[in-house]
């Protein structure tokens, strides 16, 4: 396999094709991915038409961080965004709920359509967008001044929403985040008293309480142990019945386990670009672009 190592930058290398064919026959990767893709049936709750990025660019000051990303997130699916550090995955994710503009000096171009409407259209209420497109951050960030229960329901207060039965909602969200059994006896404890993995699931429960249509997850497991990671992945698979999930991850096994579609981002010194997007099983078994292939087989990045 030493000749394969030299392929970078040479698309027509014969050994690449040989490797590709070999990759197709690798049973463990493709089976993992196909398990994930079976779940793409629409769930019980009515879903919108989905989320769509059209020609999205992003800048930080003069630095062009992301160029011309076109990507669909159909209803009832999990999409993983993979790629080496600094390729614009997280930046792209943050353009999807208008958190990008939170950073001083940020700029963008293009359209992001949520149920057919551009979320960047002038006059759009940005808080409503963020209500529909929720977010889970890399580091667990429960609100330190609030109890577990208050954390879950904090979105209702922040967005000034009314709900008929808070207790039911609290239980439902904690169930969906896979945390209920662990915290049901100490809902009045502070969020900071939980372990890192539990805190992250608390953050997922908090994001779910405002009933988002889309949930963006920015490397949600990078600070967690393998057991907590597995629990969060199970949670993600259960969420697709009602939520479109977009997850940025550095862990390719994770992408293979949880996602239906995978987008591969790469920056070749210039702005990050979406190199390839396809059903996850294809990305990991028959990637079309040699750079994708090199990345998913672990030869760079």
């Amino acid at each position: 396999m030493s000749d394969v190592m030299e392929f970078e930058g040479n698309k027509d290398n014969i050994s690449t094709k040989a490797y590709l064919e070999e990759a197709v026959s690798q049973p463990e990767i493709s089976s993992l991915a196909s398990v994930a893709s079976h779940h793409s049936a629409p769930g019980s709750q009515p879903l919108g038409t989905g989320l769509e990025a059209r020609g999205v660019h992003a800048w930080f000051g003069k630095h062009h961080a992301l160029a011309d990303v076109n990507l669909d997130f159909p209803a009832g699916t999990v999409t993983a965004l993979i790629g080496p550090s600094g390729c614009g995955k997280s930046t792209f994710l943050r353009t999807l709920n208008r958190m990008h503009e939170f950073i001083p000096g940020a700029a963008m171009a293009g359209e992001v359509l949520l149920d057919g409407k551009d979320i960047y259209e002038p006059g759009t209420d940005v808080t409503k967008i963020r209500l529909k497109v929720g977010m889970v951050f890399q580091k667990p960030n429960p609100f330190p001044s609030m109890t577990i229960a208050e954390n879950v329901l904090s979105g209702l207060k922040l967005a000034q929403l009314k709900t008929t039965n808070k207790d039911d909602l609290l239980e439902e969200c904690l169930h969906r985040a896979g945390l209920w059994n662990e915290v049901k006896d100490r809902l009045k404890a502070h969020g900071g008293s939980l372990s890192g993995g539990q805190q992250q699931r608390l953050c997922i429960a908090r994001a779910l309480a405002v009933k988002p249509e889309v949930l963006l997850m920015d490397e949600p497991c990078s600070a967690l142990d393998p057991g907590s990671t597995l629990k969060i992945e199970e949670t993600v698979r259960q969420l697709i019945e009602s939520v479109i999930v977009v997850i940025v991850t550095h862990n390719m096994q994770q992408a293979a386990r949880v996602s239906d579609y995978t987008g591969f981002f790469l920056s070749d010194g210039g702005p990050g670009q979406l190199i390839e997007t396809a059903p996850t099983s294809e990305i990991f078994s028959r990637p079309k672009d040699p750079r994708t292939e090199a990345y998913v087989t672990g030869r760079f990045g």
């Binding site: 709920n97 958190m99 939170f102 808080t127 409503k128 963020r130 209500l131 929720g134 977010m135 951050f137 960030n141 609100f143 001044s145 904090s154 979105g155 207060k157 922040l158 967005a159 000034q160 929403l161 953050c203 908090r206 994001a207 405002v210």
Partner: peptide, 18 residues
Amino acid sequence: REAGVALGGTQWRTVVMV
């Protein structure tokens, strides 16, 4: 602050509540 805003809070409510 980002978590508060990402939950659909205005900046003012995020400041006051979080």
